[in-house]
Amino acid sequence: MGDKYMDPYTPKTGAIVSLSFGKFLRACILWQVVRFVVINLRMIVLILKSKH
């Protein structure tokens, strides 16, 4: 599907295109363990900032 994203004359042109390394990282278990920690720490910060 990749090539059609790059066509500069379609409505899809404005969108950023995810590349193969980014897609690999999305499913890479080791990297995702790291991201899991980051996402949940970020959520905890957000919850603490929201307490009134």
Partner: peptide
């Protein structure tokens, strides 16, 4: 802390 990301980790969450 305004973020968005896609991945397996988000599914686990």
């Amino acid at each position: 802390i305004t973020t968005a990301e896609i991945g397996l980790a988000a599914h686990w969450t």
